[in-house]
Amino acid sequence: MSGTFTKSMARNIFYGGAVFFFLLFVALTFDTTRALPKYDNRGAITPEVALGKRIWEENDCIGCHTLLGEGAYFAPELGNVYTRYGNSKEAIMAFIKSRPKEGIPGRRSMPQFNFSDEQLNALAEFLKYTSEIDTAGWPPNVQG
């Protein structure tokens, strides 16, 4: 770099740039927070949905699946599984319930979690709520 561009100029760009763009990010976050009720389907967050989210977390579902595209890429996307299963909570519950304990020879298989009916229902409610979040049209089709 040429002699006219000094270290203190570089330092000022760093501090100035970091502060300016962090403040801009905070401002955008503020705006996002205000706009979020239009997108995030918060009206649908019932105690069952909250319980379902906790069950989702405490069994590390994200360790195999993606949810709205985030997570692991070993098992199908679940953000839209409710629609993929024909808008049926029962189908989701039946699938989770029917996983063989010892897996499927040679294939990937979801573990058997031995959930109670209340837990299964909460999980399905959580996945239904998730499927109704406004995700700007993602995923491109029902396959996730």
């Binding site: 579902c61 897996g103 573990p111």
Partner: peptide, 12 residues
């Protein structure tokens, strides 16, 4: 798919 299953599932 079932390598080490169910002892060490993929997520673990």
């Amino acid at each position: 798919g079932d390598f080490l299953f169910p002892e060490i599932p993929f997520n673990v």
